[in-house]
Computed example of a mutant assay.
Amino acid sequence: MSAFAKWLTQACQEAGLTAEQYGTRVRILAQCHFLTEEVECRPDTDGNLRFWWSWGKPIADRHDHTRLLTADEVDDLVVAIRHVVTIPVRRRP
């Protein structure tokens, strides 16, 4: 699981995100450092390795939310994570 976390950390860094590995967890900081997300690699109830959002849901494909991503679908995981940590912040008028 730590190897998958390392792989995801490196892929996030290559995609321009600041990512740090802590065992089976990966902390990703947006470029503005306003948004942070921590994902964890662990098995689901069927024993399949998945990355999980900090709010306890497995990461799904951005275009098909019914399809859960496996731990080795790193490119799709990075896209989903980037989508979460780069949400534009609304400023009050």
Score class of each variant (00 low, 15 high):
residue 1 M to E: 03
residue 1 M to Y: 09
residue 1 M to V: 05
residue 3 A to T: 09
residue 4 F to L: 12
residue 7 W to Q: 11
residue 8 L to V: 08
residue 8 L to G: 12
residue 8 L to C: 11
residue 9 T to E: 10
residue 10 Q to A: 14
residue 10 Q to N: 14
residue 11 A to P: 09
residue 11 A to N: 07
residue 11 A to M: 02
residue 12 C to F: 00
residue 12 C to G: 07
residue 12 C to V: 01
residue 13 Q to K: 08
residue 13 Q to W: 05
residue 14 E to R: 07
residue 14 E to I: 00
residue 14 E to V: 06
residue 17 L to W: 01
residue 17 L to D: 00
residue 18 T to R: 13
residue 20 E to G: 11
residue 20 E to I: 15
residue 20 E to T: 15
residue 21 Q to Y: 00
residue 21 Q to W: 01
residue 22 Y to A: 03
residue 22 Y to K: 01
residue 23 G to C: 08
residue 23 G to S: 10
residue 23 G to M: 04
residue 25 R to G: 05
residue 25 R to E: 14
residue 25 R to I: 03
residue 26 V to T: 08
residue 27 R to G: 08
residue 28 I to K: 01
residue 28 I to E: 04
residue 31 Q to D: 07
residue 32 C to A: 14
residue 33 H to L: 11
residue 36 T to L: 04
residue 37 E to H: 11
residue 38 E to R: 07
residue 42 R to D: 03
residue 43 P to R: 07
residue 43 P to Y: 00
residue 44 D to P: 15
residue 46 D to R: 13
residue 47 G to V: 01
residue 48 N to G: 01
residue 49 L to K: 08
residue 49 L to W: 05
residue 49 L to Q: 04
residue 50 R to E: 04
residue 50 R to D: 03
residue 51 F to A: 06
residue 51 F to Y: 04
residue 52 W to R: 07
residue 54 S to C: 12
residue 54 S to E: 05
residue 55 W to L: 06
residue 56 G to V: 02
residue 57 K to M: 10
residue 58 P to C: 04
residue 59 I to E: 06
residue 59 I to M: 06
residue 62 R to I: 03
residue 63 H to Q: 14
residue 63 H to M: 14
residue 63 H to A: 12
residue 64 D to Q: 09
residue 65 H to V: 06
residue 67 R to Q: 06
residue 68 L to F: 11
residue 68 L to S: 09
residue 68 L to H: 09
residue 70 T to E: 13
residue 70 T to P: 00
residue 71 A to E: 00
residue 72 D to L: 08
residue 73 E to S: 13
residue 74 V to P: 03
residue 74 V to M: 00
residue 74 V to A: 10
residue 75 D to S: 15
residue 76 D to V: 03
residue 76 D to N: 14
residue 77 L to E: 04
residue 77 L to F: 10
residue 78 V to W: 07
residue 79 V to E: 15
residue 80 A to N: 03
residue 80 A to L: 02
residue 81 I to A: 13
residue 82 R to V: 09
residue 83 H to Y: 11
residue 84 V to W: 04
residue 84 V to R: 15
residue 84 V to G: 12
residue 84 V to M: 09
residue 86 T to S: 15
residue 86 T to A: 11
residue 86 T to V: 02
residue 86 T to R: 10
residue 87 I to K: 14
residue 87 I to Q: 14
residue 88 P to R: 04
residue 89 V to Q: 05
residue 92 R to K: 10
